[in-house]
Structure formats: structure tokens, C-alpha cells
Simulated scan of single mutants.
Amino acid sequence: MSESIVELKGVRKSYGVGSAVESEVLHGIDLRLREGEFVALVGPSGSGKSTLLNLIGLLERPTSGHVAIAGRPIEGLDEAGITELRGRTIGFVFQFHHLLPAFSALENVMMPAIIERGVPDDEAERRARELLARVGLAGAERKKPGQLSGGMQQRVAIARALSLSPRLILADEPTGNLDTKSAEDVFELLLEFNRDTRAACLIVTHDPRLAARCQRKIEIVDGRIVDGVSFGPTSADEYAMRGSPR
């Protein structure tokens, strides 16, 4: 059985805690993602998808309930521990790629390693060049984001997310601003890295075609998981051996 990368038990999230306008957004979420899984998270606007992604990405803490990432419960971690776990374990890909416009593609991909180590080094540059080549951008290392198309910028963002070899990739509408061809290319890249690295991948998408190509689909409505459909094999190991569905 594959190792659990994400484990949520009875997770609730409220805003305005203790005030007269306290609002609970997530209501007792139970969720598990295993190594190598490729999972779609779907649901209407306002359903709690972004809040759930923020909790899994350790950008917010739950109001109550248990959260463990890569086997480490977060309840006893201080902010420095949360930051370390997030930086070493999780790679983020967003709808808006958030590249630094003053830096080259190479420098953007190196940035997580620079932040972690304090200075750029040869290993960070080697890894960044390797990743840019894998996403089809060999030769574009010195170009700045403004010199790249939207699809190319998202490829840089994927390379950056993978620079520290995360065990979990969180992708929030990564194809939402792209044309059909670019969206397909980006989705294929995520599938490829999922197969090659066995990193778990949770992708938020409104595109039913992309959701149907994932191993599982988790639907959230009004802060509750209402459905968890499996499209493929029953285990992440079987899925990895078979490759991505077509």
C-alpha cells in the first residue's frame, strides 16, 4: 500500500472565530491522498475548494481536526516548522503563475532553492536547466516572463514547483487561462511528472474533460465532500504501472 502524503480527519475551518459573524467554511473534512495519486478536486465557486487547498498547502491552519503531510502531524509545529515542511514537501502551481518579472526563466526556477539555501549554487542552476529542458524550454533560460507566451510561462511555473523535488504538487486551475492546446500540454506535463516522480498531485479544475483523466475525482459542495469517484485502478501503484488514462 502506498504511503499517505495527505491525511485530513474531521477538519473544520472557520473565519471570524469568536466574533458575531463567525462563519464555518469547511465542515468535518476527511481526505487521504497517497503517494503517486493524481486527483481532481472539483466543485462550484464558493464551495470551499480554495480553503481546502490552502489547508493542505499549509498556508492556513484548520480551526479543528487533524492534518498530517507526508506523515507529519502539523498540530505541534510552530510557524518555522510549518514553513520548513511546506518548502521541502509541497510544490504549488497556480492559475496565475506568479513569476517574478524582473528575473529570467532560469532564475525563477532557481528561486525556491535560493530561498532555502540563502545563495544560488551550481546544483540549483543545474537542476533548473534540467527542468526547463524537460518542460520544452531549453534555450529560453535567459528570457524574462514578459518575453514568453502564457503557456510557456506556466511551463516555467511547473518547473519552479518541481525544483525541490516535492512529494506533493498542488495545482489550482493551472490551465484556466490557457488556450486548449496549451492547457493540454500543461496537463500532460503534470501527468508526466506524476508518473516519473510518484509525487501525489491534487489539481483543482472546472474542466470536466481534465477531471475525467485523473485517477480520482473529489467533489466538494458547501464545504463538504459529497463524492469521490475513481476513474482508474484502485491503488496508486496500479495507476503508475498503467500510465495516464487517455
Results as ranks from 00 to 15, higher is better:
Val229Asn: 08
Glu79Asn: 10
Leu132Gly: 02
Arg142Asn: 13
Gly10Lys: 12
Ala113Leu: 10
Arg213Gly: 04
Arg61Gly: 10
Lys9Trp: 07
Ile82Gly: 02
Asp78Cys: 01
Pro73Val: 02
Thr175Val: 00
Gly151Asn: 04
Glu219Met: 09
Arg155Ser: 06
Gly46Ala: 09
Ala161Pro: 06
Ala68Lys: 04
Arg167Lys: 15
Asn108Phe: 07
Gly10Tyr: 13
Ser104Val: 02
Gly81Trp: 05
Leu85Asn: 02
Gly65Val: 00
Asp196Tyr: 10
Leu59Pro: 10
Asn108Ile: 03
Gly223Glu: 06
Leu52Gln: 11
Asp172Ile: 04
Gly228Val: 14
Arg213Ile: 05
Leu190Pro: 04
Val67Phe: 06
Ala159Arg: 11
Leu58Ala: 09
Gly228Cys: 15
Ala212Glu: 14
Ile158Val: 14
Ile169Phe: 12
Ser235His: 10
Leu189Gln: 13
Gly146Cys: 00
Ala40Pro: 01
Thr234Trp: 12
Phe193Ile: 09
Val25Pro: 03
Gly36Arg: 07
Ala159Pro: 07
Gly10Gln: 13
Gly43Phe: 07
Glu3Lys: 14
Leu41Ile: 06
Arg213Cys: 03
Ile218Asn: 05
Ile220Ala: 01
Leu148Glu: 11
Glu173His: 09
Glu24Thr: 14
His27Tyr: 10
Arg34Ser: 13
Leu189Gly: 11
Glu84Lys: 12
Pro120Asp: 07
Gly65Leu: 03
Pro208Phe: 11
Pro112Lys: 05
Leu99Ile: 01
Glu60Leu: 07
Ala105Ile: 04
Ser149Asn: 05
Ser182Ala: 15
Thr51Gly: 06
Val39Pro: 02
Arg213Glu: 04
Gly139His: 11
Gly71Thr: 12
Asp196Asn: 13
Cys201His: 14
Gly91Arg: 07
Gly139Lys: 08
Arg209His: 14
Leu85Trp: 09
Gly228Lys: 12
Ala20Cys: 05
Gln95Lys: 04
Arg12Trp: 15
Ala183Lys: 05
Thr51Arg: 03
Ala102Cys: 04
